[in-house]
């Protein structure tokens, strides 16, 4: 867990540390699947890092997350525009959208759509293992290679993303509503669950992401 050095010969994954939680799990998980994760704690570090991929991990609430992510925003937009693979996890997925009911703060708007509260009638937050239904309507997702309908992933969240363009939805999960669990658009990838807490299948998704960078 050191942001000062990394092996420049392998593809480097910058994990954005926006000061709201522990990043040990996501770091360990990317390390475990053969990635080269480096935790970056400010925009300068992100500029210097010359990242081959970026992970926005999932901690905290939408408003707090956006407030702490703003200093990274110019570089994040550049990386997103330049085709660098980006993976948003949980709240790190939600901030990619335009806005959330949870906060007045605007999201990055890299993906078009809203973030809305889980419906009445289910326990909020959703906390636990739930199943994916994979949508293969457009193309096969490299990130979901080896993942099957009915595979379980670990969720902890009270809000969910509603993309404007339904074609970006790669997989859904049913929790009182059929909600987007995996969203992919070009180099932008996002998951509502925590792959770093989803045992073997979660590691497989991270491994697929790491392999994707090498291509």
């Amino acid at each position: 867990m050191n942001d000062s050095h990394y092996d420049s010969n392998t593809d480097m994954i910058a994990i954005i540390d926006y000061g709201m939680g522990n990043l040990r799990s996501i770091h360990n998980a990317l390390d475990k699947v053969g990635g080269n994760p480096v935790i970056v704690s400010d925009n300068n570090a992100l500029l210097k890092a010359d990242a081959d991929a970026v992970v926005i991990p999932g901690v905290g609430s939408f408003g707090d997350a956006m407030r702490n992510l703003i200093p990274f925003s110019d570089r994040l937009f550049d990386l997103a525009d330049s085709g660098t693979p980006l993976l948003g996890i949980c709240i790190g997925m939600q901030v990619l959208f335009d806005r959330s009911e949870e906060s007045d703060a605007a999201g990055f708007g890299i993906l078009a759509g809203d973030v809305t509260r889980l419906p009445d009638g289910v326990k909020i937050p959703q906390m636990g293992w739930n199943e994916l239904t994979i949508h293969r309507n457009n193309r096969d997702s490299d990130m979901l290679a080896g993942i099957n309908d009915g595979d379980f992933f670990y969720f902890v969240h009270s809000y969910y993303c509603v993309p404007e363009d339904k074609r970006v939805i790669a997989a859904t999960t049913d929790y009182g509503v059929d909600m987007a669990a995996v969203v992919e658009k070009d180099n932008i990838h996002a998951v509502q669950f925590h792959p770093e807490k989803s045992s073997k299948k979660g590691l497989l998704i991270l491994k697929n992401f790491v392999e994707m960078i090498k291509c």
């Binding site: 360990n28 807490k197 590691l203």
Partner: peptide, 8 residues
């Protein structure tokens, strides 16, 4: 544990 076990 958290080096090799990826669950809550």
């Amino acid at each position: 544990t958290s080096e090799n076990v990826f669950m809550p």
